[in-house]
Design a protein around this nucleic acid. Structure first.
Lengths: 205, 205
DNA sequence: TAGATTGTTAATCGATTAACAATC
DNA sequence: TAGATTGTTAATCGATTAACAATC
């Protein structure tokens, strides 16, 4: 199956979540029109997205929620599970650790690290918190792909260096400061202010 | 000045942040090429974006960082300050409250609410935490536009109802569950898993 | 002047929407 | 059969990139 652009993947994840809640309500059939009403996306777009997979809907009937969910998930799962590690078990870190979406599905939070002794050794949201010195070993062992920086900005660069040393190639940086890394490492800076403002800038369907 | 699409606004915010750090390093001139290297966006795109404002660069020289920053900020500020209130001062809520970007600029976090007595009456990140019952009064008084839900999912719907009653028209929901609101209220659900996965799905410049 | 960089116009690319045939 | 809904092809729309004239 061909690689789909990010925009479509994002919508596919939304479809899956929507289907989950439909299934929970024991609704086993759904039309693109109904999905459109729930998600706010246009029905044509939904059908177009779904048609990337295989003929799975029945004209006049719609889609079987269970089948559709399985098909979409299969596509994502074959695209390998993404293993994520977290640096910093403070407020933001703990919120991320407790987030239920990271326990199943194809994005897994596999380990967390903190510099403070009183935070390590525990589990939060089912994820172990290790002392930060152990990160190279643990990251290698669990073959993590992505690292999240959720430490105070004073330590962001330090942690980033450590992540690169540990072999991570992709970093999501929540610290409100830029970090410098070798060119081969991909960084996404998350600026809450930017994200928020842009959330409501457009009126696109 | 015409209204710009969200995509461009998001980039403008990134330019501002980049300019800030250049200014901090006492660099007062910058070319689109240099901005391109820092931000990872193409130089043409950057020039095109900037040309939405006014002729502000000098061929052969580049842009004055101070002037450019001021021009971009003026555009955003004339688009009115967005006043945001937060419901839930737990882990995620505290992380948001401490986020420095919300103290200045045109997205302001003006008040927070929590149901637990031991959290209220304090200030976190310079923002007052009030008992949740006071939200209608306070939201009206400070004319807030947007509310953030950062409470456990069991209380998300309850809080959403309260927000609607308090007169908020736009809600950002971090609770991992759908909420139902009247049609006139705009909801953005933030699913960390979705956001994360899609962050690294594409390779677009 | 020569060369570099801006700002703009035209061309390309991709994503969304419209239209419609296929099908249950 | 008639009507509703899928899936696809063509048309539209918007955003990015290429090309280049203007200018310092």
């Amino acid at each position: 199956m061909k690689k789909l652009p990010r925009k479509i993947i994002t919508r596919v994840l939304l479809y899956i979540r929507t289907l989950e809640s439909l299934i929970k309500e024991k609704r086993f059939l759904v039309s693109s029109k109904q999905l459109s009403e729930i998600t706010g996306l246009s029905d044509v777009k939904i059908r177009k997205d779904i048609s990337n997979f295989k003929k799975i809907g029945k004209p006049r009937i719609g889609y079987k929620t269970l089948d559709l969910k399985r098909t979409l998930e299969n596509y994502l799962i074959q695209g390998n599970t993404v293993r994520v590690v977290l640096f910093g078990a403070g407020n933001l870190g703990s919120a991320i650790l407790r987030y239920p979406g990271f326990r199943k599905g194809n994005v897994r939070l596999v380990a967390a690290f903190d510099a403070l002794r009183r935070k390590t050794g525990k589990k939060v949201g089912g994820v172990h918190i290790y002392p930060v010195e152990r990160s190279p070993e643990i990251i290698r062992r669990c073959r993590a792909d992505i690292g999240i920086i959720a430490v105070p900005k004073e330590h962001a660069q330090e942690v980033a260096d450590f992540m690169v040393l540990s072999g991570l190639h992709r970093i999501i940086n929540f610290a409100p400061c830029p970090i410098s890394v070798p060119a081969k490492v991909q960084v996404r800076n998350i600026d809450f202010t930017i994200e928020f403002l842009s959330l409501f800038c457009d009126t696109q369907k």
